[in-house]
């Protein structure tokens, strides 16, 4: 039962990820990596870092 629900959960996440625009997918990858790097910082500090860094990183998006 649990495995079946886990599978459904994975499928729902996959569905969301496959439906989005490739640029949005790239944004997700970039922002998660950045958040992970800044996780040890306070929320306010991480927010400013992520906002500024992401604004630069998305310049790679056409």
């Amino acid at each position: 039962m649990t495995n079946k629900m886990d599978q459904q959960e994975i499928e729902r996440v996959q569905q969301i990820l496959t439906k989005i625009n490739p640029n949005a997918y790239d944004v997700i990858r970039m922002v998660l990596a950045l958040e992970w790097e800044n996780l040890h910082k306070s929320e306010a500090l991480a927010r400013n870092t992520v906002r500024d860094e992401m604004a630069k990183k998305v310049e790679g998006i056409a």
């Binding site: 969301i16 989005i20 640029n23 949005a24 944004v27 998006i61 056409a62």
Partner: peptide, 24 residues
């Protein structure tokens, strides 16, 4: 503008995924 659209789409998708994974 197209970057903003990508960022907003990513934000909406992540919010949905977060809810699915939290409840999972």
């Amino acid at each position: 503008r197209s970057r903003i659209m990508a960022v907003e789409e990513a934000s909406t998708a992540l919010a949905k995924i977060l809810e699915i994974l939290s409840q999972g």
